[in-house]
Amino acid sequence: MAGKRVLIVYAHQEPKSMNGSLKDAAVTELSRQGCQVTVSDLYAMNFEPRATKNDIVGALSNPKSFNYAVETYEAYKKQSLSSDVVEEQKKLQEADLVIFQFPLYWYSVPAILKGWIDRVLCQGFAYEIPKYFKNGFFQNKSALLSFTTAGTAEMYFKKEYAGDIRYILWPLQHGVLHFCGFKVLTPQINYAPERASEDKRKEMVTSWSRRLETIWDEKPIDCSLSWYFE
């Protein structure tokens, strides 16, 4: 889809990792389609994951009692957020599709990616009251989680010790992406690449590339409780 803009928010330390290969495959395939692809390589950027007073440039609204959410909301309205946050917000604002590429850490994202979520998706920019969920700001954008796990696929079922993978996705897909209004696409999950053969790992990358060939035709998931828990 020539002219489409894609943002890949990538969180892995090693370029030669499976996550690195999946990121590279996405860049290659989407660029081949004529998309404009931007990668936020968080580790390479040395992205600051901590949400602190440094995210506000200039005077605080209430210097006597610091409230990060309130201060960043006011700073966004006054255009006084730190430059690194503003740069990421600009990338996100321009994107038609956002891909989050990461390894699953403790049933969630790596700290550096959680910091990106905390700092970039501030009130005023990513949501407003009551403009969230189906009324969210990013209704014209799609997003998906592409990630790797340490455990095999057989471990992520309701009666297994890891639990159903959809339970794990609830906070990220529903509490972050859907909350901000994104159309959430089916996650791309690559189970236990470190336990897989070289041929199997290549298959994972090829499968991802093939999916991306028709990614613009995909329908979003049903963002309801039943998708996750029934």
Rank of each mutant, 00 (worst) to 15 (best):
A2E: 15
G3Y: 14
H12I: 03
H12T: 04
H12P: 03
E14P: 04
K16W: 14
G20A: 08
S21Q: 14
S31E: 11
Q33V: 06
Q33I: 04
Q36N: 13
Q36T: 06
T38E: 07
V39P: 00
S40T: 04
M45K: 15
N46K: 10
P49H: 12
N54L: 15
G58K: 09
N62C: 09
P63V: 09
P63A: 12
P63K: 12
K64Q: 13
S65A: 10
A69T: 13
E74M: 06
A75W: 03
K78P: 01
Q79V: 06
L81E: 03
D84P: 05
V85N: 02
V86E: 08
Q89W: 14
K91T: 07
Q93M: 05
E94A: 10
V98T: 06
P103H: 06
P103A: 08
Y107V: 02
A111Y: 12
I112G: 03
I112C: 09
W116K: 07
C122Y: 02
G124M: 08
G124I: 02
F125P: 00
K131A: 15
F133P: 06
G136A: 10
G136L: 08
F138A: 02
Q139S: 14
N140M: 10
A143E: 08
L144M: 11
S146A: 15
T148G: 03
A153V: 11
Y156F: 11
F157S: 07
K159C: 02
I165C: 01
Y167P: 00
W170E: 02
W170F: 15
W170Q: 06
G175N: 08
V176D: 04
H178M: 03
H178Y: 14
C180D: 01
F182S: 03
F182V: 03
P187Y: 07
Q188K: 13
N190L: 02
E194L: 15
E194I: 15
R195C: 06
A196G: 08
E198V: 10
K200R: 14
R201L: 13
R201C: 14
K202P: 03
K202R: 15
E203G: 14
M204H: 09
M204V: 01
V205F: 12
V205W: 07
T206P: 00
S207D: 09
W208Q: 04
S209H: 06
R210T: 10
R211L: 07
D217T: 10
I221V: 13
S224D: 11
S224R: 11
S224Y: 09
L225Y: 15
W227A: 05
E230L: 14
